[in-house]
Simulated assay, not measured.
Amino acid sequence: MGNLAMNKKSIAAVIILSIVTCGIYYFIWMASTTNQLKMYNEDYNGTSGGMVVLLSIITCGIYGMYWWYQIAKKVTLAQQKAGMPTNDNSILYLILAIFGFGIIGSAILQSDLNNLWDYASMNTANNNPYAQ
């Protein structure tokens, strides 16, 4: 599965790049986050990151609101898989998205993901007798 800590991103960079690029980086982050969680959760039938972005654009953001709810569920599943305490923020993300505060949701989500990747990579290293 590789080094999971490499999936970490700076929360400030996600926010700043999303603002500076007028939302283009936000879509890149959305696709990347979706794909990382798909791989970690071994969800081979789920929607790809590129399709999430395309559907969000085509539906003028309506699918994006659904994505926020679903991505929180996927983070919760990943937290369970990693053996860490779960934190289901699906309703919070949905409310933030509805009122146009997706940027705040992205900061909270990236924080949760950074904690997940740290915990999962630490767990992987501790369970691997060949890890250095």
Rank of each mutant, 00 (worst) to 15 (best):
Y69K: 09
L92P: 13
A120P: 08
L92D: 11
T47F: 01
M39N: 08
D118T: 14
A13Q: 10
I28K: 07
K74F: 04
S18Q: 02
V52G: 03
M6P: 00
M51Y: 00
I98V: 15
I15Q: 05
F101A: 12
Y119R: 05
I103Q: 06
I98L: 15
L96F: 09
N114T: 05
A97T: 13
M84Q: 14
A12L: 14
Q132N: 11
C22R: 03
L94V: 15
G100Q: 10
G46F: 00
A31I: 12
S111L: 04
V75M: 13
T47S: 00
A97F: 13
M51N: 05
L17T: 01
Y93A: 08
A31S: 15
I71V: 15
G61W: 09
L116V: 05
T86W: 10
V14T: 09
S10M: 10
W29I: 00
W68H: 13
F101D: 06
F27G: 04
A31R: 04
P129G: 06
A131E: 12
I62N: 08
V20N: 11
I71G: 04
K81M: 09
L94W: 14
M51H: 00
S56D: 06
A125D: 12
M1Y: 11
G46H: 02
L55C: 14
I24T: 01
M30S: 01
Y130L: 10
M122S: 14
Q80C: 02
W117V: 03
I91N: 13
W117K: 03
N7P: 01
S90T: 13
N127Q: 13
I103G: 06
A72M: 10
W68I: 02
D112E: 14
W67N: 02
G46N: 00
G105E: 11
I104C: 10
T47C: 02
I108F: 07
I11N: 05
W117A: 05
Y25I: 00
W68Y: 12
I19T: 08
M39G: 01
V75T: 08
N45Y: 13
G23V: 07
A78S: 10
S10I: 09
C22Y: 11
I24N: 06
N7C: 11
L94S: 15
Q110N: 07
T47N: 04
N89Q: 15
G46D: 01
C22W: 11
D118L: 06
L96W: 07
Y44P: 01
N7F: 12
N87A: 09
S32W: 10
P129K: 00
T76D: 14
S18D: 07
M6Y: 12
A78G: 03
I71A: 03
A107F: 02
Y63F: 15
S106V: 00
M65F: 12
Y119S: 11
W117Q: 02
S18H: 04
T47L: 03
L92M: 15
M6C: 05
G83H: 04
N7I: 02
F101N: 09
L37I: 14
W67M: 03
V53R: 00
T86K: 11
G83P: 03
T76A: 12
I62C: 07
A12N: 08
N45A: 09
Q110S: 02
D43E: 14
M84A: 10
Q36G: 02
G46W: 02
D112V: 04
A5P: 01
P129L: 09
D88M: 08
I104N: 08
G46Q: 03
Q36D: 15
